[in-house]
């Protein structure tokens, strides 16, 4: 499996990462090697195997619908790079 520059750029866009041309080449090479390693998996017969997405088989616990809340606005906004009038600030968005 080899990954081309266009794919690297597309994936970087999806992941919201900016990549330099050198990085594109580097990622293409490294990811291709890693994916080659992964091709081994396709050789295992797995038609009847149930995918395993959790390490331990359990059912989801549910909590009661009770409000449990303190107004933490100031503490949380204090972590933000930029905040104003009780809001998190971001560059201008166009819908």
């Amino acid at each position: 499996m080899s990954i081309d520059a266009a794919t690297v750029k597309h994936v970087a866009t999806l992941a919201r990462l900016r990549v330099t041309p050198e990085e594109v080449a580097q990622y293409a090479e490294q990811l291709s090697r890693i994916l080659t390693l992964m091709e081994a998996l396709g050789r295992l017969p797995t038609e009847d195997v149930e995918p395993m997405s959790h390490a331990v088989a359990m059912a989801i616990p549910e909590r009661e619908d009770v409000v449990c809340h303190l107004n933490q606005r100031e503490a949380l906004l204090a972590c933000a790079p930029e905040s104003e009038h009780g809001h998190f600030c971001v560059p201008k968005m166009i819908e």
Binding site: I60, R63, H69, R73, L76, L77
Partner: peptide, 24 residues
């Protein structure tokens, strides 16, 4: 008022986890 009804979980701070509301 804006952001007065948030906590680390719904604001997706690092390391926090969701717990499902039974009533939903």
């Amino acid at each position: 008022d804006a952001n007065t009804q948030i906590c680390p979980v719904c604001a997706a701070f690092p390391g926090v986890l969701p717990v499902l509301n039974r009533e939903a």
